[in-house]
Write a protein that binds this DNA or RNA. Structure first.
Lengths: 305, 305
DNA sequence: ACGTATCCATGAATTATGTTCATGTATTGG
DNA sequence: CCAATACATGAACATAATTCATGGATACGT
């Protein structure tokens, strides 16, 4: 009954001082505007204007409606603008899930580059999901998954953003420090420290120990990368981490990387997302930024501390 | 582009959880609603819902729109309610102009009765007008004029609300105190105290002194009724006031009323208003209340102090 | 697993609504 | 007093919204 058009008319007539002028501004004929007002006044049961001769004066009711128009119309107009932002893909939510413990610092770096350029994107990072990273994507719990283990799924899309080598980390005083590489069997007597995730998500098992049928003497888990490296440094165990991460910390902690097997364990970090989001501007831009940060990883690490 | 109907759809679909149910509630067919949404999404360039199978999930844009709807729709609905109040005449402005100095207390009494019954009427009292009371009415500066001197005008309407007698007030020790009446000539040697308004608006001149060609010895003006009575009481002059007002004060101030001329000066207080407002509910009600207060004047006065 | 009920989408037909055109009336200003 | 200006109005017209009929997809019960 009371439509946006009516509010626009009331506002414009109040601005212009005459219906004819307002009609002009609104790209209507004077007649159309007159009909519209007549219908509104009939519908509401009370006039908005007092016609005295050819000049108009707002009635109390009209004043009330004008105030409403001045409050509401800008909101509608702004909402349309916001919708246009969504449509252009410059606004949206980017909830990122992490399935890659050591990638956190890299991600922060990417975000630091990305966020200033996409101020209307609501970026957020999660590390825990009810049904795993893939499930979180499908449930819209997250919009993007950072993972070393892409899992092809209808409706999902994965893209590698950088390569890395998973290496064994040992104390610099460890027997293996300086070795060209390590064989699975050489870990049979070791304490292996990993992040607290399921064993079948650990590359050191999947791609190294398990194929060889080897088990470490003890398997301990630790949340924090820093603490893990401290433990390794003082000889309380060995760990498996990306080479770049080890190199980053090597300056401050006495640890050394050793290749896992003769050929090494080569991995890629992937970004996973729903197919529907592949074309979205701000999502594409994030992937671009992440790929660009491939080099950043090293430079950033080099300049760090 | 973004219309009220769209917001209603978004809100109702969100409430009901399905388009079909929402269409029902909105007295639309499912098809109409579907078409409407499709058109909106086309217009805005971004979907509001993500259709997965037969269930819907709001997109970010949709969430934004839903919030808008929850903010804006209640305002529109309330505005319609308010318009209905104006239409029924239970809401409006009643700016009252006073052209009758001594009526103020009577008016307060009327307002005290009226306002609780018409809570949505914005009552206000003014005593000064740029172009006189009539002009103020015609200019919408006021909506009602309280005056002892109605002035017939096209577009205006006056209605008497109570009769009173204008009397001379003298000190109880004055020679005239207790006289049956006073002749104009008897004021020739007196100091006459009046409110500070043009002489031709003073009844004591128009209806008493001027017809007899008499002038008082001195003419002084005073704003306040109380002060005026004090001056009269101590013999610094005489004044002309409504009899009921004199009687009201007689208990606390030693003054006495004396009839002006053998027949007395009989007056009526009128309420003046624009013809257009004659049928308005809250205006009629005010007149009714004012007429009812005719008796109240005396009882109120009797019980006062 | 299969049928059925439910839900949403869509094109064509229909209806409702808004807009214009043509014209009238009232008021203002020169 | 005439010309110009502004608003109102009825009928014709154009546009937009709604319905009808239908189809495809998905959940749900048996």
């Amino acid at each position: 009954m009371l439509e946006r058009g009516h509010l626009m008319i009331v506002r414009e007539v109040a601005r212009q001082g005459s219906m004819t002028a307002a009609a002009e501004k609104l790209h209507l004929t004077q007649s159309a505007l007159s009909h519209a007002m007549r219908k509104l006044e009939l519908g509401l049961g009370t006039p908005m204007w007092e016609r005295q001769g050819r000049s108009l004066r707002l009635t109390q009711a009209g004043t009330h409606l004008l105030e409403l128009a001045n409050r509401v119309l800008p909101q509608l107009e702004q909402a349309e603008q916001t919708m246009a932002d969504y449509a252009r893909g410059v606004r949206g939510s980017l909830h990122i899930g992490m399935e890659c413990h050591p990638c956190y610092q890299w991600l922060l770096k990417v975000m630091a580059l990305y966020m200033p350029q996409w101020p209307d994107v609501d970026v957020d990072v999660k590390q825990k999901f009810r049904f795993g990273g893939i499930g979180a994507l499908l449930d819209h719990e997250i919009d993007m998954l950072v993972t070393p283990d892409p899992e092809a799924q209808p409706g999902l899309y994965f893209e590698p953003v950088f390569d890395y080598e998973q290496v064994l980390v040992v104390s610099r005083s460890h027997a293996l420090a300086g070795a060209q590489f390590v064989e699975p069997a050489q870990l049979a007597g070791e304490v292996l420290i990993t992040y607290p995730v399921e064993t079948d998500r650990l590359d050191v098992y999947n791609l190294f120990l398990t194929p060889a049928g080897v088990h470490p003497r003890v398997h301990k888990t630790i949340e924090s990368t820093d603490l893990m490296l401290q433990m390794v440094a003082v000889g309380r165990g060995v760990a498996a981490l990306p080479r770049w991460l080890v190199e980053e910390h090597a300056a401050s902690v006495p640890v050394a990387p050793v290749r896992l097997g003769r050929l090494g364990v080569l991995k890629q970090i992937h970004l996973g997302l729903r197919e529907a989001d592949r074309e979205t501007g701000y999502v594409r831009a994030f992937i671009q930024t992440a790929r660009g940060a491939r080099e950043l990883r090293n430079t950033a690490i080099a300049t760090r501390d």
